[in-house]
Design a protein around this nucleic acid. Structure first.
Lengths: 119, 119
DNA sequence: GCCATTAGTCCCGGTTAATGGAACTACGGT
DNA sequence: ACCGTAGTTCCATTAACCGGGACTAATGGC
């Protein structure tokens, strides 16, 4: 297994981070990983908000998140354990992640209330 | 002239905003517009950080920023005047824009000091 | 050790999005 | 009416994304 690439915190770009989180599936995955107590495997996200994500696509998504410096992935046995790099990111770009995750939360909450109102 | 489309603040998505600002040229344009005292024309950005941007591309970039709800564009005579929608955006996604612009600033400053050190 | 199973990755063809040159439109000035 | 300027639209080329299928790496059972 070729060791997974993780960029140094100094090489991270805002563009990369925004691009990674501009996809709803990736944003969801990252929010979950960032909010979870323990590391999450990739296959935990084969279903995201009632939609099936093919595993090749999922693998790409994780690569994008890794390359953007948002998560760290390490193999443990047969599965991959993903953890957020929040502390480093917070030092490099203070407040950025929190603002984005908050905005996403705000949006999904609103979507829920809107849907409820329609129903 | 077909009137320009501006989405309602309620229809804005975080994904759209992040995607729009994940491009370095667009991020630069938006930062300038957001930071300027007065409205900016499109052609003010035919040169961005020492690179020439073709005007068809530039036009597309402005459309992306408009569609994401980041700017408002209105024709005044022969030129287009662009203003930020910061107040509305702040109400919808508090802190988001500031965090992103701050992160961008932080990044460009670092790039400058790095380049200076190398030289 | 060998086979089966599980978790992810890689490859590659099809589809979609971004880029930029050239033609076009919209407006103002003369 | 014509010209120059500011932006837009069209279209062909190129790059990025998606997902099915083959492949790889690690584990457990036998």
């Amino acid at each position: 297994m070729r060791p997974l690439f993780h960029p140094s915190i100094d090489d991270l770009t805002v563009e990369g981070i925004l691009h990674a989180l501009s996809d709803p599936v990736r944003a969801h995955i990252f929010a979950e990983i960032a909010g979870a107590e323990r590391s999450q495997t990739c296959s935990a996200f084969l279903e995201v908000s009632d939609r099936t994500v093919p595993k090749s696509t999922l693998s790409q998504h994780f690569k994008v998140l890794r390359d953007a410096g948002l998560i760290r992935s390490e193999r443990q046995g047969v599965e991959m354990h993903n953890t957020p790099r929040c502390d480093e990111l917070e030092r490099r770009f203070p407040g950025l992640l929190k603002a984005i995750i908050d905005a996403h939360k705000r949006q999904t909450e609103r979507q829920r209330t809107r849907r409820r109102r329609r129903a």
